[in-house]
Amino acid sequence: MKIEPESPNHEYARERDMDAFWKAAIPLHEPINKRWYIPAALLLMVIGAPWLWPAGEEGPVFAGLPVWVWVTIGASLGLSVLTAFGALRLWRDDGEEE
């Protein structure tokens, strides 16, 4: 996709062709096209929140941190993997893969 030369300010005021806007907005593939993408991210955030652990208690400890903290770190890692997968594999556009 070619980048237009610097546009004069508020050319959009005169040329708000919204059909062209929406046509230009939609890429070939984007992560939210997959219906599971946002639910999967939300699920990882729910797993990472320590609501299942006994409130007000430390619980078991591993390597100097409470285990519930390790679970949050693990869920964050899962979210990182999902997000990286979204960016690398679920986001595609025409004419960009030079």
């Binding site: 980048i3 237009e4 992560p31 991210a41 556009d93």
Partner: peptide, 18 residues
């Protein structure tokens, strides 16, 4: 993660309309 939700469209628009 939020970037991956809106950036694909915003970047495409930015590159098209400068």
């Amino acid at each position: 993660t939020v970037f991956t939700i809106y950036a694909p469209r915003l970047v495409r628009l930015a590159r098209t309309f400068g």
